[in-house]
Write a protein that binds this DNA or RNA. Structure first.
Lengths: 355, 355
DNA sequence: CAAAACGAGTAAATCGATTTTTCGCGGTTG
DNA sequence: CAACCGCGAAAAATCGATTTACTCGTTTTG
């Protein structure tokens, strides 16, 4: 038919063996770089490999070993810069060690998270990098534990008694944000966040509050938190500002603990005609490329994606290679970029106060 | 040791078989839902499966078939909303059909693209969704052709003689942008873009130019294009504005053909203190979540990610299941969201003209 | 000089399924 | 009554590698 040479079967190790006049076992050894092969035979094998265009079938190759050279990665979503970069990093690190990364998105659902994990267990992955939807106590981590899987937890975790964890040092970064805001004389600050149950949210909130109160005991910190979804948060925030939150007063700064919260805050400011930093200041956890090109540029906490990915993979491969010992909990330092969205209150009269 | 019940081997099909008192072949049939099994035996197998917690090993299961139930996806990057959503969609569609999606990022490199493809060929994937870095004529598509792989090309492609293609209808969307800008009395428009070689860039440029010239033959359209990298584009754009581009005149609107171009344009506007839409209007191809919360909200062409992913998978699975016939080339309609960054020129005196 | 050690290679078992082939058996049929 | 069918199940082959166990020379050693 129309197919010329394309369709025929790929050469297997036996094809190479017979062409080189040796056994399949010898070919396998040559491919694995084992030294105990006569140079002459090795050359014949190499020639045959070259001529036939032979490449090892990773799936067949993995069949016989208990742990396959596959790493699973489970992220809450793929749409944000943070997790996009994370997957990209993890992929390249896995690849460097000859592993294939299979990434899946739990779409912010713990049920899906567990399903995916079960599927990865079916695949007999060598290890899993799990960025849990909420925290280290979800059903997914329990499943991993129950089935003796090796894995690392990242991002929305603090520490665990079974797995190594790697995440951004939320508390310290939040403390620095507090120092900056207090230093700029903010004394009424609203903190908003998504994912009440996320391990990191509490760390960020507590880190912020502790430092703020230490530096300025008279500071007023309001908190608006919503569980998983953005829309409730938007509604709560709107309500908060509508109420004037305690007699005409309005916070002079907002600290958002999550990227989506920053977007919600911005859109609420828009709706009310408030401008940063004159009417209100804004800092968000999680940086994004666009934040430096808008006017004003949005201040943000930059998470060290490369470090998190790097240390996660390091820990994971150490465990895969059999390292024992109690699980470690790593916190990677963040960078706080104070951009134009943060100013000092009272420098300029509020605009947009009417409406 | 410390390991309780976790470590022991997973049950295999033989474990189930012996517990149910049947052969492995029978178990396989029950799992596959084949009807020719005595109900009583089927029940015994099901019980054993239940009791042992048996699950089919997809890797072993795929061993014997020529095409494995794996779909490969190759994207230029994972960091942007567009490709993030794309991967997410593709994953969920593959999963629905019982396939596993293995996604890889070519990081905007054609060389890597081909390497990844070779690796996917090693895995004997059933099909590939390739979003090429440049266009359908790259080495990756050639590799697929040469090796008789089945696949679909998406995004930066128009049509191909070997593979089905699915992409956004860049030309029509650009035509609509042209209608909008001309309608708002813009007569000097700058078009900027990245990836001169990308199939879609030409379509977007031509679609825009043709319609603009038809509606207003006197319109002046300047073009600043750069190859792969953002920085050269930034430099070229800066240079373009510095030169005043032909005697003090400055375009009244900028149309960016790519997301990164929109960011570059915005940052250049910032640098010069120009504000949208008073000083200059801006429309970008590719929407992003942040574009509606900034002030001004950025006008953008929204690509139909779900449709592209959906039709790509549809076409791919049709081919996997053996559908013959000439390759199809699909163009999915976009939506153009005209936001505040676009206005009419001359309504308001330019600000920031000094400097 | 016989025995042990070693080097290089192969045949066969293995991984965990699927698929093809074969088999046994009760029931028809010529 | 022997040949034939058809069904359900088991046995065996298969997929493409890796790994173990074993063989056959050759070399070292006691």
């Amino acid at each position: 038919m129309a197919h010329r040479q394309a369709q025929q079967r790929r050469p297997s190790i036996h094809d190479v063996a017979s062409r080189a006049g040796v056994s399949a076992a010898t070919v396998s050894k040559v491919m694995a770089g084992v030294a105990t092969v006569k140079p002459e035979n090795a050359q014949r094998v190499l020639d045959a490999v070259e001529h036939l265009g032979y490449r090892v079938d990773p799936l067949a190759s993995d069949m016989r070993r208990a742990k396959r050279r596959i790493i699973g990665a489970i992220m809450p979503e793929f749409e944000s810069e943070f997790f996009g970069q994370m997957v990209s990093q993890l992929e390249s690190l896995a690849e460097q060690r000859g592993y294939t990364l299979v990434a899946a998105s739990s779409r912010e659902s713990e049920a899906r998270e567990k399903e995916i994990l079960a599927r990865m267990h079916d695949w007999r992955v060598a290890g899993v990098v799990l960025a849990p939807v909420r925290n280290e106590h979800g059903p997914a981590a329990a499943f991993m534990k129950a089935n003796g899987m090796t894995g690392v937890l990242i991002d929305r975790v603090l520490s665990d008694d079974a797995f190594d964890t790697v995440s951004a040092d939320s508390a310290s970064a939040s403390a620095e944000v507090a120092r900056e805001l207090i230093g700029k004389r903010h004394r009424h600050i609203l903190v908003i966040g998504l994912g009440e149950q996320a391990a990191t949210v509490r760390a960020r909130l507590d880190g912020f509050r502790a430092t703020a109160l230490k530096l300025a005991p008279d500071v007023r910190i309001d908190v608006v938190l919503a569980e998983t979804d953005v829309e409730p948060l938007r509604a709560q925030l709107r309500d908060y500002f509508d109420r004037g939150e305690g007699g005409g007063e309005r916070p002079t700064a907002v600290y958002s603990l999550f990227l989506k919260g920053t977007l919600v805050a911005l859109s609420e400011f828009r709706r009310r005609g408030w401008h940063c930093p004159n009417d209100i200041s804004l800092v968000g956890f999680d940086d994004a490329e666009w934040m430096q090109v808008t006017w004003p540029a949005i201040a943000a906490v930059v998470q060290p994606v490369r470090q998190i990915a790097g240390h996660a993979m390091e820990a994971l491969f150490a465990r895969i290679e059999g390292e024992e010992g109690p699980p470690t909990a790593r916190l990677e330092p963040c960078k706080v970029l104070m951009r134009e969205s943060v100013g000092s209150p009272g420098n300029v009269p509020h605009s947009g106060d009417r409406q």
